[in-house]
């Protein structure tokens, strides 16, 4: 299931190769808090550095094809640059999708995924994607969909459908996708 997050491995913590009893007192991750020790028989200082070995692998299981047939019938809604208002043409798409949600997909929840073009990875871009999703949500509620069936997420610029460096491509990425959840 796509929405089930699995932590598949938490591995190999805090290893310092060649650890002596002296090393064991050193925090294994932090190399900024260095340990200074006088060099035997000289004026030089000794500084020991260590690193981290934490690796967490997260992923999704492969059961994301279940609802794909229904989802494929729901077109994405596209937006103008830096805007989250819905054009009449896009309103028709929302209305059509709402009909599907009320009929064939009536047993599912809807997840609205807001997306932006590549011009910025900052929070504002994510907020813009969210405002787009929220505009679609409001429209679906007006179409008679219960608000409790709708969730939203913004992916900002991180989930493009097109990666070319063209204005046409960027326009494709300024969109809200419709996903179904059980």
């Amino acid at each position: 299931m796509k929405n089930v997050l699995m932590v598949s491995a938490v591995a190999a913590l805090l290893v310092l190769s060649g650890c002596s009893s002296k090393d064991s007192s050193i925090e294994p991750y932090d190399n900024s808090g260095v340990t200074i020790q006088p060099e035997t028989g000289g004026n030089a200082n000794t500084e020991e550095l260590s690193g981290e070995d934490v690796v967490v692998i997260e992923g999704t299981d492969a059961n994301e094809m279940t609802l794909s047939a229904l989802e494929s019938r729901m077109k994405s809604v596209h937006f103008a640059f830096d805007k989250f208002s819905i054009s009449p043409e896009m309103q028709d798409i929302i209305d059509t999708n709402s009909q599907l949600v009320k009929s064939d997909a009536k047993n599912y929840s809807v997840k609205l995924e807001g997306n932006c073009d590549e011009w910025g990875s900052d929070e504002y871009n994510y907020a813009l994607g969210l405002k787009r999703a929220n505009a679609v949500k409001s429209s679906m509620i007006r179409d008679g969909i219960d608000a409790t069936r709708i969730t939203m997420v913004s992916y900002g610029e991180s989930n493009p459908t097109c990666t070319d460096k063209t204005e046409a491509c960027w326009a494709q990425n300024r969109r809200v996708d419709f996903k179904l959840l059980p």
Binding site: L16, S17, G18, C19, D23, N31, V34, E39, G42, N43, A44, N45, T46, E47, E48, L49, S50, G51
Partner: peptide, 19 residues
């Protein structure tokens, strides 16, 4: 100035340069 830096792993050498 004279100083000695120690570490267990080769990939941490860059932090010695920073230090």
């Amino acid at each position: 100035m004279e100083k000695v830096y120690k570490m267990s792993k080769k990939n941490l050498l860059v932090f010695v340069a920073h230090s």
